[in-house]
Amino acid sequence: MPKKFEIRLSGSGGQGLILAGIILADASLLQGINAIQSQSYGPEARGGASKAEVIISETEINYPKVQKCDMLLCLTQKSYDQYIASLKNDGILIVDDSIELRGANGFKVYSLPILKTAVDDMKRPMVANIISLGVISKVLDIVTEDNILKAVLKRVPPGTDYIT
């Protein structure tokens, strides 16, 4: 892995992205890698812009905020428009397929039906965050799928660990 890997998860409030960030950081710790999770938020509990950040590193992490993303997840058009400039030129972009990519050149792009899967297949819009983590676990080769799964089970509310 690179010395330091910076991930930003963005969307709107209520999509559970902060929890996704926490799970990702937890999974990194399970793997013995340093991690810091942080977020920025506005006054809204639901809606509004929401962003969670995770930095994972094999060495000490000083500045806790993401400066240039190695990986950017966007679940809304607004968050894509706002944060796309923060992605490194060779960075990984994961977006919901409802998002219109404007000039996303050079990135490794994964445009996937995240929200649609949550709503149509799982019948629960609130699981978009865990679906996103599934995508990340496949794309990110630093933290193993096994550790991400362990961290998910540790953090999700009781009774929601298995849903069909």
Binding site: A25, I36, I61
Partner: peptide, 9 residues
């Protein structure tokens, strides 16, 4: 706010 809200080991 930063150190109060961030998560770390």
């Amino acid at each position: 706010e930063i150190i109060a809200h961030m998560r770390e080991k």
